[in-house]
């Protein structure tokens, strides 16, 4: 546990050394993305979200920060064990600390930058102080899903070194398959369930409901999301434990 904390601290430290903005750099990417997408798609999709252009802006921003956290954590975790292969050959260290610390580092950054913003938006835009405690559910779900997927990608990379290329593609599919910048309403009725009930979509929609729409997400959405979170994390753990028996032959 101490080791995970220390490792996570080290990742955060190295990533943001020498920049005066520090961890706030991580907001730059979603802010830039939000502006570009709003510029291009705001006119076409804006009215699905509300009368003001800001409604679309905030919705897209929430989408980007969520998917960004997920894809950068899992993509970084993917490399983490192979990158520390040398160390694992010289010292007795449980391999799981590397993906876990990577996700922890990304979570620290997320909690310092994105979460306060979400809370602020909940109070100002959603005018919904009661929504604040509700934020816990989608955020905990996001952490669990990300951790589960990260354990699987990290283990897969130990076995097959071409996994990063394949995972790039998968990440793109997840991005397009999640209503980040387009409203669910434009998707055909046949394809919609495929998109609507994926874990990341559920989390994005729940966050939007709480933060900007002043709504409580449906119980069904919470339940399905919670189920996903538990299943993905349990699967990640299972796959990792089974795979780690043969790690040392492949590092």
């Amino acid at each position: 546990m101490e080791l995970v904390g220390l490792m996570a601290e080290r990742y955060v430290k190295i990533r943001y050394r020498g920049s005066s903005l520090g961890v706030f750099w991580s907001l730059l990417n979603p802010l830039a993305m939000t502006s570009i997408y709003a510029l291009v798609f705001g006119h076409a999709f804006g009215h699905y979200y509300g009368p003001s252009v800001f409604d679309y802006l905030f919705a897209v921003f929430i989408g980007f920060v969520t998917i960004n956290y997920f894809s950068s954590s899992s993509a970084q975790a993917l490399q983490s064990i192979v990158n520390n292969g040398l160390l694992l050959n010289k010292m007795r260290v449980p391999p799981s600390i590397f993906p876990v610390a990577t996700v922890a580092a990304n979570s620290i950054q997320f909690v310092w930058t994105v979460v306060p913003l979400l809370a602020l938006l909940t109070l100002i835009i959603g005018r919904n102080p009661l929504g604040l405690p509700l934020l816990i559910f989608p955020l905990a779900g996001l952490l669990m899903v990300t951790l589960g997927v990260s354990l699987i990608t990290a283990a897969a990379h130990v076995y097959y070194r071409d996994v990063p290329h394949i995972y790039d593609l998968i990440n793109f599919v997840i991005f397009v398959g999640t209503p980040v910048f387009y409203p669910l309403g434009i998707v055909s009725a046949t394809a919609r369930p495929l998109i609507q009930w994926t874990p990341i979509s559920l989390i994005v929609e729940e966050l939007r409901a709480i933060v900007i729409l002043h709504r409580v997400p449906t119980l069904a959405s919470f339940l399905v999301m919670g189920l996903w979170a538990v299943v993905v994390l349990a699967m990640g753990r299972l796959v990792f434990v089974a795979a780690s028996r043969n790690f040392m032959d492949r590092l």
Binding site: R10, K13, M91, V93
Partner: peptide, 25 residues
């Protein structure tokens, strides 16, 4: 274990940080 000592160092961190990290490892 004094097996290829130094493998646990992170070149991007300071000596102090590395000593602590290595010890915790």
């Amino acid at each position: 274990p004094l097996i290829e000592i130094g493998a646990g160092f992170d070149p991007e961190l300071s000596l102090v940080d590395n000593v602590v990290l290595y010890g915790v490892l």
